[in-house]
Design a protein around this nucleic acid. Structure first.
Lengths: 342, 342
DNA sequence: TTGTATGCGTTATCAC
DNA sequence: GTGATAACGCATACAA
């Protein structure tokens, strides 16, 4: 199909430089104990011939492909896009490529995708969260494959991870609303199946409201898929109740945007008539009217740290790796005291 | 470093099944002319031994790694996230993996990243837009590597592509504003260096306004980096002018969001006092207050079609591949006639 | 339809 | 420090 151009091989470089193939390989891999003179001769031969090493042969012989795999639920959520973007940029520094696979929160798909990536020969794996099928751990261990999960914070020695606590900020958000005098709270959660982060946030909301004796009744806890339109729907559901909430805790910013925009659409004043909180601190959160009170998830920082840590693990440094990052609350104007005019 | 478990090889499967290695390979690759009986024996042996083929060896021997590379400016822009998400899902169907690399609109970085991916042995390449260094084409051609660019629509036989016209919708947006009676137009553009899409949109805006005799003077054409905050800044710059615009054409939705939110912040009524247009139709565009008039970029459709077309090319089908998709205007409430009360 | 034998382009283990 | 040479694990042309 394509013209079979005569490719320059490592052996050609060796001949051109008048050295052995082993020496060329050593120069290529920056191995120790190589004389400066030899290095120069080889490099000059490489330049002269325009030699480019073959990654596949390299991978077979060295048992390293120079790429890791990342399994993410979706790239449609910009928070993951941001993380993957940082991850890839940082991996580049370590001369490492990135294979991505998405699984739409379907853990069977995740395991299947992992199998495929492992078969490709990836040098390491990045996972999101703590919810995985048993097969994932089994496979990873059996292959002795370096891996790291992120976006959560379990101190599990079998699951090295770099992330943040999802529960505590959720509790703090709930507490913030309680402090402002709200008692009729509602929760808009993403589906928790296969999503420990969503579950942890929901639990945080519940723990705090229960402790205060005003846990939302079932009808004020709605679960919707990820999306602005879904947030709009959730708002409509909640406001149709006999006793609508005075404040809504959302599982993520996108849902909060939906809720907020739906509220504005019907002319509701935020926060006078309704307080709203998010979780993620997406770029537009601070530009909403009013700016959204939320939790700043360190997506970019996670990407960088995961890259560095996984590369370290691949290099054999089996560090502890339970890294807890800060996910601070960001108080803005979407939350406030209920106006007492009624 | 990791326990060297005795891996099961293709040869082991052959022995177990009592056939040759070639036969096992044929079954694995679903080659034609394999008897049902042989297939069953091999598959059963594979199951019994839990054999998993080695991707690196496969790649070296077959000269296909089962993955393509995608070079995107950034994944921080959700429109690219959406495209990559669809692309990856669709590639999966074809049993193809995805390597991604970002280059922050730096064409030198793009070429460098391409070199790295080519060296890995990727089977094909996806590019964004038409702006690339000469080296990109040279490299692609010399290796006879199947590739496809997207997000633009040149009818260049040397550059197979699947995309949409960026200029025409831009013209139509400008015309829409002119029809509404606006004469003091402004443009907020993303940097056009290394970004033919931004340039095409800008040109569309200019062509139409020039034709109507009201091309914006230089001070009403501002260029800012991608981002909501940058849109806010652009708004402030434009509104500080002696003759501020009555309508603003933005190069993408994110900039438009920034402009709109900044306008709301200072209490400006949209569209009564200011009309705003975007480009992309991000999910939140229709949920803004007011909903944003914009252009619906078929990001997901591009992802799917690119996957199918590139796989076809890799399989040797050298189709024409200049596929023009529709990018329709979406008229919403962020544009309207200037209120004539002054 | 199936088996045999060789090649894929490196890396790494030895010697020297 | 440097050079032979044997892996690395599979695909495929060719033969049968």
């Amino acid at each position: 199909m394509s013209k079979e151009v005569q490719r320059t091989l490592l052996g050609d470089v060796a001949r051109e430089a008048g050295v052995s193939t082993a020496s060329v390989s050593r120069v290529l891999n920056e191995a120790p104990h190589v004389s400066e003179r030899l290095r120069e001769r080889v490099n000059s031969a490489i330049d002269r011939l325009g030699y480019v090493p073959d990654g596949t042969a390299r991978a077979l012989a060295s048992r390293r492909i120079g790429a890791i795999g990342a399994l993410v639920p979706t790239l449609d959520n910009p928070i993951f896009g941001a993380m993957i973007d940082s991850l890839e940029q940082r991996l580049k520094r370590h001369d490492c490529r990135l294979l991505i696979a998405t699984y739409r929160y379907d853990l069977d798909d995740e395991l299947q995708a992992l199998r495929t990536l492992v078969q490709q020969g990836i040098d390491g794996v990045v996972l999101i969260g703590h919810d995985h099928l048993q097969g994932v751990q089994t496979l990873l261990q059996r292959r002795g494959l370096p891996f790291l999960s992120c976006w959560h914070a379990e101190d599990d020695p079998d699951w090295p991870n770099i992330g943040f606590d999802n529960t505590l900020p959720a509790r703090n958000l709930a507490n913030h609303l309680l402090q402002l005098g709200h008692r009729r709270l509602a929760i808009v959660s993403a589906p928790t199946a296969g999503n420990d982060r969503a579950r942890a946030r929901l639990e945080g909301f519940l723990q705090e409201t229960e402790a205060a004796g005003c846990a939302p009744p079932p009808e004020r806890i709605v679960t919707v898929e990820y999306g602005i339109a879904e947030g709009v729907l959730a708002f409509e559901t909640l406001m149709g109740l006999d006793a609508p909430p005075t404040a809504i805790l959302c599982g993520n910013d996108t849902l909060a945007f939906g809720v907020m925009l739906a509220a504005q659409r019907v002319g509701m004043r935020i926060p006078d008539e309704l307080s709203i909180t998010g979780f993620d601190d997406l770029p537009q959160a601070r530009f909403m009217t009013p700016p959204l009170t939320t939790v700043a998830v360190p997506a970019n920082e996670i990407g960088k740290q995961v890259a560095d840590a996984l590369i370290a693990r691949i290099s054999g440094e089996m560090l502890p790796h339970h890294q807890l990052l800060d996910a601070p609350l960001v108080f803005r104007e979407s939350t406030g005291q209920l106006s007492t005019k009624d």
